[in-house]
Design a protein around this nucleic acid. Structure first.
Lengths: 249, 249
DNA sequence: CATAATTAATTTCATATGAAACTAGATTTT
DNA sequence: AAAATCTAGTTTCATATGAAATTAATTATG
């Protein structure tokens, strides 16, 4: 977790949206060649894009963009949550960026897992891992989020019943619980939850400070939460008093 | 139609797999700046990739690669076939590269069409067109072809019934009919055909000279074919004597 | 028909790029 | 502890790149 130069790099690029390689080299006090190498590695991971002379962030309504925000924290959360998934199991994963990293971790760890998801981003993200088997549910395609939603998803879900469902969230309120920002997607995740015994939320702690527009789940519906240590203490106790198992990385 | 420099460019790159921009400029007898502009346009269309100093073809087991083969012919076929699709209709499209171009044409023409498909490639390919509504069926995800296949697809299909199904093909034999090269995909397309009144094949004529390994459809099952003028006359009469409507571009 | 306005390609130029050789520090081997 | 290997970063260099200005060719317009 010790902050690497690459982390700084990503943060600067995210903040500036577009910045010259030369300027980055000045700020970080390394040669341009080194910056270029770092940038190429980050581009490889899909965390930013290159242009002749520049580094630019991904399109903000792209999933890769969200992936680049708090990347290290999300990665740690995903690693921790991956421990929960047994070899040879079948799990459901929703569409969040941390969920994508969870899937990737499972792939890297070589566990044989079947992932049922609504996200084509995730399906592609882990395409390289032979040990993962991905089933994508059917439905209306939302290109911006690369997710399928709507009544057809519910119908496709009929056939399934799993132990664990991993989801992300967009906002939180101690009284009302967790929130989403897209009606279709929120509704779809709720349908998924009906088919899973255990609901596990993966989210960086920033979401606990945000509101959302559509209620996703009440606290009573959530079983476990994986997040980072920055959760406000009041929220922490609130969650725990609702019998939610809290894992902090 | 009249052969443009861009067509030559694409053909050379496809043939050489990887070639220097400088060399391309020499061959085509234009400046390097011009070649670069052309290459950038082709990259934009997904027909090739750029590297510092080079143009390289797409990964051959990628759908974008197939798209780049006989691109102009496929485009003409797609344009012609698009005339068949009525505004406000619901159609099924399989996963071939010409099918992707058909979807794109419908998008460009501004027709309000709902496309039911098994191809995530197509779903993304036409993401920009607001007039198109894409429903992707659910199933096991094949990352190489970016398609869903298997029993779940069949189950998802239960809900649908459409007039037209557009498909591509991998091979042909006058006695046996059309062939595919992937069992899962071929089987899945057959399931789709059960839900459509009319089966329309879009393919460049080269496929008529190829064999395939799994029978896809008999001639009796096919209603219309859109292809180019290079179909061998014997095959042409053979098709027509089977009551198949043949459209040549 | 002439002139203006687009469009297509070229030349020029300052800067970015990847490759390779090099250097200093850290880590492993003996 | 000395030598060998590995790693991260730098310097150097020949070439590629995008931007802008220029020229040539085509199409529109009065």
């Amino acid at each position: 977790m010790n902050r690497s130069r690459t982390d700084d790099l990503l943060e600067i690029v995210n903040q500036k949206r577009k910045i010259e390689v030369t300027k980055l080299a000045e700020i970080l006090k390394v040669s341009r060649v080194t910056v270029r190498k770092d940038l190429n590695a980050l581009e490889e991971k899909g965390l930013l894009q290159r242009q002749h002379g520049y580094a630019i962030i991904n399109n903000p309504d792209d999933l890769s963009y969200r992936l680049a925000q708090n990347y290290q924290v999300k990665l740690e959360i995903a690693k921790k949550a991956a421990e929960l998934v047994k070899d040879q199991s079948i799990i459901m994963i929703e569409s969040g960026s941390t969920c994508a990293l969870l899937a990737q971790q499972l792939g890297k760890q070589g566990k044989k897992v079947t992932i049922i998801t609504i996200s084509y981003f995730i399906a592609n993200y882990v395409a390289a891992y032979e040990n993962l088997n991905v089933i994508v549910l059917g439905g209306a395609y939302q290109p911006s989020s690369q997710v399928v939603v709507g009544p057809l998803v519910r119908q496709t879900l009929q056939e399934f019943r799993v132990q664990q469902l991993f989801i992300g969230t967009d906002g939180f309120d101690l009284q009302m619980g967790f929130f989403g920002n897209d009606i279709m997607r929120t509704e779809t995740v709720q349908s998924m939850a009906e088919k899973a015994s255990e609901l596990i939320i993966l989210t960086d702690s920033s979401k606990f400070q945000k509101m959302g527009s559509i209620r996703q789940f009440t606290l009573a519906e959530v079983n476990q939460i994986y997040t980072d240590k920055e959760v406000p203490p009041a929220i922490k106790t609130g969650l725990e008093s609702n019998n939610i198992q809290l894992h902090l990385v």
